[in-house]
């Protein structure tokens, strides 16, 4: 499925990130404050907590043309709301496996814990997710569901 090298160059994947307000969003703020340069392909949507992040968001993002999705929040034991991330971890463990079973390439979806002090890690998550989506190419399979190809 991987694209040939010259196409990888030209393709700019679109990646949607659903992040919690307290850890990842703040970590991404820190990456900014620290002027850490990263790929410009990720668009962040801010939620209060990973507990609020609904698998429906991920499906909808793919439907709207995302080539990759990032879900990110506080490390275990770090949740601003004490346990939202633990519930999210269960929810997305199942969701991730179901999507895989239905044939979505696992590289399309990135889950990560990024704390408010991990600006550097956020950059890695962004660059990794971008590189993986770039390798896989446009998520045409999903877009084809709508009868539309990128």
């Amino acid at each position: 499925m991987a694209l040939p090298a010259e196409k990888i160059e030209a393709f700019e994947p679109r990646i949607t990130a659903f992040v919690c307000n307290w850890c990842t969003y703040t970590g991404a703020d820190l990456a900014g404050t620290s002027r850490l340069q990263m790929d410009p392909n990720v668009r962040i949507i801010r939620l209060p907590c990973t507990g609020r992040i609904d698998p429906l968001f991920v499906i909808k993002a793919f439907e709207r043309g995302a080539d990759g999705v990032i879900v990110s929040g506080c490390h275990p034991a770090d949740c601003h709301y004490t346990s939202g991330n633990y519930h999210a971890r269960r929810r997305f463990a199942v969701f991730n496996e179901i999507l895989g079973f239905l044939g979505v390439e696992p590289e399309r979806l990135t889950f990560s814990w990024v704390s408010a002090s991990e600006g550097q890690k956020w950059r890695e998550v962004v660059n990794d997710a971008t590189a993986r989506a770039r390798r896989l190419g446009p998520f045409d399979a999903f877009r084809a569901l709508a009868g539309r190809s990128a």
Partner: peptide, 28 residues
């Protein structure tokens, strides 16, 4: 935190300020 809303199977609970409508519109 909104964990209730993501957990609710029928989305019968809404977190004000981060409602499904608002997030859906962002994604859309």
């Amino acid at each position: 935190c909104g964990t209730c809303q993501a957990t609710c199977p029928s989305k019968s609970v809404e977190l004000q300020g981060f409602t499904d409508e608002q997030i859906w519109s962002e994604i859309n």
